[in-house]
C-alpha cells in the first residue's frame, strides 16, 4: 500500500543520504587542490574591499601584508611546534613559508588598510583610493 510508512527505514535512508552528501563534499574538497595556500575570500562594495584569509595558528608577527595600488600580498611562516625527534603519525597541516599575491577589484588606499586576526582568520579592510572612487557629475541646467 502506498500510504504505509516505515519510520525506521525512513530514518536510515536519511542518515545514509546525509553520509553520502558528506562524502561527496569531501571528494570535491579534495579536488580543490589548485587553490594556492592560504585560501581567501574577497568581498567588495563601492567603498571598500574586504579580504579574509584562513590563517589558523598564526600570530600577528608571523604575517606580513603588503599593499600597492590594486595588488595585495599576504606572506607568512608557520613553524612546527613538534620537537625534532617526535614520531609522526599524520602530517597534513601546512608548515613553512608562503606568499600569495592577488589583484584587488580596484586600487586601494595603502596607508588606511586595517588588519586583525579573529579565530585563525585574517581580516583585512582596504578602503578604495579616493582617485578611483566614482564621481557624480552634476548636469548644469
Amino acid at each position: 500500500m502506498l500510504g504505509t510508512r516505515f519510520p525506521l527505514a525512513h530514518t536510515e535512508i536519511l542518515r545514509e543520504l546525509s553520509r553520502i552528501q558528506d562524502e561527496v563534499n569531501r571528494v570535491f574538497e579534495g579536488l580543490a587542490f589548485d587553490i594556492e595556500y592560504p585560501p581567501l575570500n574577497i568581498w567588495n562594495n563601492a567603498e571598500k574591499v574586504l579580504v579574509d584569509v584562513e590563517l589558523p595558528g598564526y600570530t600577528a608577527d608571523q604575517i606580513e601584508v603588503t599593499v600597492s595600488g590594486e595588488t595585495l600580498t599576504v606572506a607568512g611562516e608557520r613553524k612546527e611546534n613538534a620537537p625534532q625527534d617526535a614520531e609522526w603519525h599524520r602530517r597534513e597541516r601546512f608548515s613553512g613559508r608562503f606568499s600569495k599575491t592577488i589583484r584587488l577589484p580596484y586600487p586601494v588606499e595603502a596607508s588606511r588598510v586595517e588588519a586583525r586576526l579573529e579565530n585563525g582568520i585574517l581580516k583585512l579592510e582596504l578602503p578604495r583610493s579616493e582617485a578611483d572612487k566614482p564621481r557624480k557629475i552634476t548636469v548644469k541646467g
Binding site: Q21, N25, A82, D85, E87
Partner: peptide, 13 residues
Amino acid sequence: QVSLLPDVDIYEK
C-alpha cells in the same frame, strides 16, 4: 551545512 575535513597533524613524544 558544508561538512569540512580539518587538516590534522598527529605526533608523539
